[in-house]
C-alpha cells in the first residue's frame, strides 16, 4: 500500500515536470525566437556598413556649444529630467577632458582642452562588451551597419551591460520616467521603469534618411558617416587630422573619434 502510493506520487511528479517543461522546450525549438529584432528601413534610408562619428573638438569654444546637440537628443528621444543625479538618463552629455579620457590625464594639458567640455556618447564599439554581457540579446550590434541597439521590451533590467560598458554610456530607468518628460515626442517610444537605455546613433532617423539629431544640431562639431567608405566625410576628416578614441587600449574598437 505504502509502496504503491509512493510510486503513484513519483509518476505524478514526473508527469507534472514534463508538462511544465514543454513550453520551455517549445521556445527552444522555435528558431525565430532567437533572431534579433528588425527595424524596417524606409525608401530614403541612409545606408552604410559601419556608421561612425568624428568629433572636431577644435570647433568647441565653451561648454555651451554642446547644449544644442544635447537638447536635440533629449527632446526627440523623450529623455526625462529626473530630480536626483543618481537616476539620471543620459544619451549624449558633456564631460571634462580628464573624465572623457581619464587614462590620458596630465598636469600640463593644452589650455583650450582644459577649458572646454567634450561630448560623450555610446561609442558603438566594433566589439561591444555590453552585447557580450547581455543574457537576453536585448542589446545587440546590428550586423548590417554596426549600430549597437537596444530592445527595450526584451531587457530584463539586470544591468550587466552597465557594468560591462567602460564608457558609462548606459542609463537605467530607476523609476517611471514618463512624469519627468517635459514634452513627449509621439514619434519615439517612451521607456518604462526597470530597463536600460542608451544612444542608438538615431537608428530611427537613419531609417528615414535623416542624420542623427545631435549631428544636425551640432553646428559642424559632429561629423557622421560610413567608416567603410573612403570617400565619406568621416574618412576625409580622419585622413586629414590626428584623432584619438576613448580607452582604445581595451580593444573595444570605438566608432567615435575625437580630433583634439
Amino acid at each position: 500500500m505504502e509502496d504503491s502510493r509512493r510510486n503513484f506520487l513519483k509518476i505524478a511528479g514526473i508527469s507534472a515536470l514534463g508538462l511544465g517543461a514543454s513550453p520551455v522546450l517549445d521556445a527552444f525549438s522555435k528558431e525565430e525566437g532567437l533572431q534579433t529584432p528588425q527595424m524596417i528601413q524606409g525608401e530614403k534610408a541612409l545606408k552604410a556598413t559601419h556608421w561612425g562619428m568624428v568629433i572636431d573638438t577644435r570647433k568647441i569654444h565653451s561648454s555651451e556649444d554642446l547644449n544644442p546637440m544635447i537638447a536635440a537628443c533629449n527632446k526627440i528621444h523623450n529623455i526625462p529630467k529626473l530630480e536626483t543625479e543618481n537616476h539620471e538618463i543620459k544619451w549624449i552629455w558633456a564631460e571634462a577632458y580628464h573624465n572623457a579620457f581619464p587614462e590620458k590625464e596630465t598636469n600640463f594639458l593644452n589650455e583650450r582642452l582644459e577649458h572646454i567640455a567634450l561630448p560623450v556618447l555610446c561609442n558603438h564599439c566594433e566589439d561591444p562588451p555590453c552585447c557580450r554581457a547581455c543574457p537576453t540579446q536585448a542589446t545587440f550590434k546590428r550586423e548590417s551597419d554596426g549600430v549597437v541597439m537596444m530592445d527595450f521590451h526584451r531587457c530584463i533590467g539586470c544591468r550587466f551591460c552597465m557594468a560591462a560598458c567602460p564608457y558609462g554610456a548606459r542609463s537605467f530607468n530607476f523609476r517611471d520616467p514618463r512624469p519627468f518628460i517635459k514634452e513627449t515626442n509621439l514619434e519615439f517610444p517612451t521607456r518604462m521603469k526597470g530597463v536600460v537605455e542608451k544612444c542608438s546613433f538615431c537608428a530611427e532617423r537613419l531609417a528615414e534618411g535623416k542624420l542623427p539629431a545631435c549631428v544636425e544640431a551640432s553646428n559642424g562639431i559632429l561629423i557622421f558617416g560610413d567608416l567603410d567608405d573612403d570617400k565619406s566625410e568621416v574618412r576625409q576628416a580622419l585622413r586629414e587630422n590626428y584623432t584619438i578614441r576613448r580607452k582604445q587600449n581595451l580593444g573595444t574598437g570605438p566608432s567615435v573619434y575625437y580630433i583634439v
Binding site: 554581457a133 530584463i156 550587466f160 526597470g194
Partner: peptide, 29 residues
C-alpha cells in the same frame, strides 16, 4: 536576490527564451 535585483522581474524567462551562451549570466543561471 537575483530576482529582486531585476528591473523587470516578470521578463525573467527571457534568459531561457533567448539563450545567450556568450553571456556569463546565462552560465551562472
Amino acid at each position: 536576490l537575483i530576482l529582486v535585483d531585476l528591473g523587470q522581474p516578470m521578463r525573467m524567462l527571457n534568459v531561457i527564451f533567448y539563450p545567450s551562451p556568450r553571456s556569463v549570466l546565462f552560465w551562472d543561471m
